[in-house]
Amino acid sequence: MFTIEHEFDATVVTLVDDGSAPLQEDVIVHATESAILLNQYDARNDRTVSITLSPEQWRDLVAALNLPEGVYRAK
């Protein structure tokens, strides 16, 4: 399951793990023109872990999810 919210300067997508146990914490994706920020709470360390991707890295990641094993370069 996921939700999508459009804010003033970003689109926020929340990915909820509704699969079988053990379930993972929600992943929150903040997408702006200049960066994609992924956040997930880490209960072991009691903090939120973040990773920032450029729009190009995000594009490549999305494309990679539908491709077979190999090395690719986006045009």
Rank of each mutant, 00 (worst) to 15 (best):
E25C: 07
R44V: 01
A31V: 12
W58D: 01
D26I: 04
A10F: 10
R47N: 11
S20H: 12
D46L: 01
A35D: 08
T11R: 09
E33N: 15
T11Y: 08
P55G: 04
I36K: 01
T48K: 00
S20D: 11
I28Y: 07
A21F: 14
L15R: 06
D60T: 07
L15I: 14
L15T: 06
Y41P: 03
D9R: 08
L23V: 15
V13E: 08
R44H: 10
A10G: 03
L37G: 05
L38S: 02
N39G: 14
V29I: 04
P22K: 03
A21N: 09
D60L: 09
D17Q: 07
P22T: 05
A21M: 11
D26G: 01
L15F: 09
G19R: 13
I51K: 07
D46N: 10
Q40G: 06
F8W: 10
V29D: 04
Q24I: 13
A35E: 12
S54G: 01
T32H: 00
L38A: 07
Q57N: 03
L61D: 03
D18P: 12
D46K: 08
P55W: 00
R59M: 12
L15P: 05
Q24E: 14
F8E: 15
I51E: 09
L61I: 00
A21L: 11
Q40W: 04
